[in-house]
Design a protein around this nucleic acid. Structure first.
Lengths: 162, 162
DNA sequence: TTGTAAAATGAATAACTATTCATTGATATT
DNA sequence: AATATCAATGAATAGTTATTCATTTTACAA
């Protein structure tokens, strides 16, 4: 809390005028950060684009955002797995997945995505892959170029295409 | 350290006869846990099995092990991303990936796996997917049955097959 | 049994940190 | 100007925790 106060150029006591506990502070920080991060994923997405290109845009957004805001992503995940998460957090996480599940559902209706797979599994397959890619880039300098990104998306497309 | 000592039925001071610091203790614990965990992945694997079945066995091993030892896996990942990791840890991680990279390489040579993808990307694609599946099971009760596991492997197979 | 080296002990130390609250400072009102 | 309300301050408090080391216990050889 001392460090937080110093960063904010206020006194420690002042924090407690706006937040009940340290946990309350972290809680609110988590929720804000989560929302901001998620908004980025759908940036520039338009339902009018071709389905495949739209999906690619979203996952490339995710990849780039995770690389550029690695510490944020890392904090969010650690916190999510901590004993501090409550129903609020879980509900927000569900709500956030919703748009992507809807897009996947649309893909099925267009006959482009395998309809024998549940949406969650499709979501997890792509999320997991791109998460690993970003982490490997940050942690072990796995190089990226246009070709690698295209290949990665193609791989995940093969995973789900009808 | 007090809790560790209590769990081990020894006095706090005794710990310092065997470990320099708390960090040293964690370090050695990490390395031991990592090795044990990894040994499990290749359990019952035989190079004589069909390539596809062998690969499936490994990833199902991974999935099951991660579910049954979730706290261990979680600790290993947190620690790996912490400032405490040193070159020892990184080297061990590389060494551990080796057998899987070799298997992937074999798949390429048999003409079963796309050879235009680098081994690391193939590895990450599968790892990411199964990791997410396990986490979703533990964190959000994503139900598993034989069918779902088969589907998941089939998806990742489509991702990499020639 | 006695003496000695090694191993184990846990109270004391020192450093850190979340939280409180009496005091000070700022702002608005009469 | 005087008063009242509200906001900000940071030293003091209370609690936690890694580490040390003087002392005790154990193991073993003579």
């Amino acid at each position: 809390m001392g460090k937080v106060a110093k960063q904010a150029n206020i006194a420690v006591g002042t924090i407690y005028l706006y937040f009940k506990h340290k946990e309350d502070l972290l809680n609110q920080f988590y929720l804000k950060l989560y929302q901001v991060n998620v908004d980025r994923f759908l940036e520039h997405y338009s339902p009018n684009d071709s389905f495949r290109e739209g999906l690619k845009l979203i996952w490339v957004n995710y990849l780039k955002h995770r690389i550029n805001h690695y510490k944020d992503s890392h904090f969010l995940e650690q916190y999510y797995k901590s004993p501090y998460v409550n129903d609020n957090h879980k509900r927000l996480a569900e709500q956030v997945k919703k748009p992507l599940h809807d897009i996947i559902q649309k893909g099925k209706e267009l006959g482009l995505v395998r309809s024998d797979l549940d949406n969650e599994m499709i979501f997890l397959g792509m999320l997991g892959f791109f998460r690993e890619l970003a982490d490997e880039y940050v942690g072990n300098c796995y190089i990226f170029n246009e070709d690698r990104i295209n290949k990665a998306f193609e791989m995940s497309w093969n995973m789900i295409k009808a």
